[in-house]
Amino acid sequence: MREETTGNNPTPLARRFLAKCKENGFQVAYTPSYNDLLSVLSEWSTGWGVGKIVLGGVSAGLAERLRGALSVQSPCEVLGEADLEKLGDLRAGSLGVFRARAGVAETGGLVIIDDWKANLASLIPEYSVGLLKESEVLPDYWELSSLIRKSRPAGLAIISGPSSTSDIELTHVVGVHGPVACGCVVAGFELDE
């Protein structure tokens, strides 16, 4: 059951989702407006020392606006087929911003559905941030089951924190093969312009 957007404050479901994401190691934010989203992305990328930003699976309108605004700070590009041979360039010092299609509040996970660009942007760069609309937050896996049955995706990824391992003496280390740090933004406005 999806909850409706309430304006400047997140719905209880979105709050629960963000709290769980935080527990999982995400940086989290609720952004009621586009300008808020921009300042969050700008602040996080500065904090991480990001040198390059790539956008994956973000709608053309939003990508255009973000590219224009974020390029002032760091080079910002939309991931395309031409970049596939240069994925290695994204491994260090870059941020991938991707569009998630759902969030799971009970376990704190961002869901990518059938979107190879979002998949790459969430996986290859050193840092990643997932964006989703408040109305896309689902309470639990049960709701996601229904969504899968309805949409019959070919592939799906649920991201519930930074890439991590405890394989060496059970010491927790982040950033093994995927991002070292990641963020999650719930937007209280229409993302896909």
């Binding site: 995706p153 991201i159 519930s160 890439s163 995927g178």
Partner: peptide
């Protein structure tokens, strides 16, 4: 409650 990643694959999945 969750591991970092759950990956669902099959024919035609994301690559």
């Amino acid at each position: 409650d969750a591991t970092s990643y759950i990956t669902v694959i099959g024919p035609g999945s994301m690559s």
